[in-house]
């Protein structure tokens, strides 16, 4: 992963001191190493090599390469039952949280799903649609939402 570290390295070190979090391409990170790998907008972080893509497409198993040269397979995140929820209510009901796909991820951060290369428009259609990707053709409907609905 390409690094543009400059002499004032504070932002990078700040991110790397943050608590562990899952890889944002649906890949898992080696939780015990404590290294912050990914960005809040869905890109690979330092040290992760997208081996599957280099070998011919598609998302496969990522390996994490910390600076000491070890190659560590990225482990699975904590399973939902490992995430402890305090309170009397049945955690399975979801009323106390803990059942959505982002459970266990750091709070108060913005996450965005990674775009996939798929569903392209034909050449002429793309210019008219204002995007090459069908999934990004998101017409705005002013006045469609009234009274908070």
């Amino acid at each position: 992963m390409m690094d543009t570290r400059n002499s004032w390295a504070a932002p990078r070190e700040l991110y790397e001191s943050m608590p562990p979090r899952r890889g944002l391409r649906g890949m898992r990170r080696d939780v015990p190493t404590g290294r912050f790998q990914n960005y809040a907008v869905g890109m690979n972080g330092a040290g992760i090599t997208d081996r599957a893509s280099e070998e011919g497409g598609g998302i496969g198993t990522l390996q994490y390469e910390p600076e000491d040269g070890r190659v560590v397979p990225i482990a699975d995140p904590p399973a939902p039952d490992e995430v402890r929820i305090t309170g009397e209510e049945n955690p399975d009901s979801g009323a106390c949280g803990g059942t959505d796909a982002l459970t266990g991820w750091p709070l108060a951060m913005v996450y965005a799903p990674d775009q996939v290369w798929r569903e392209l428009y034909e050449d002429e259609e793309a210019l008219s649609a204002g995007t090459l990707f069908r999934e990004l053709n998101l017409p705005f409907c002013p006045g469609c939402r009234k009274n908070g609905r």
């Binding site: 992963m1 543009t4 932002p11 960005y39 890109m43």
Partner: peptide
């Protein structure tokens, strides 16, 4: 100029 990852730059 101040982004730490080249993808973002």
């Amino acid at each position: 100029f101040s982004m730490p990852y080249r993808e973002v730059v």
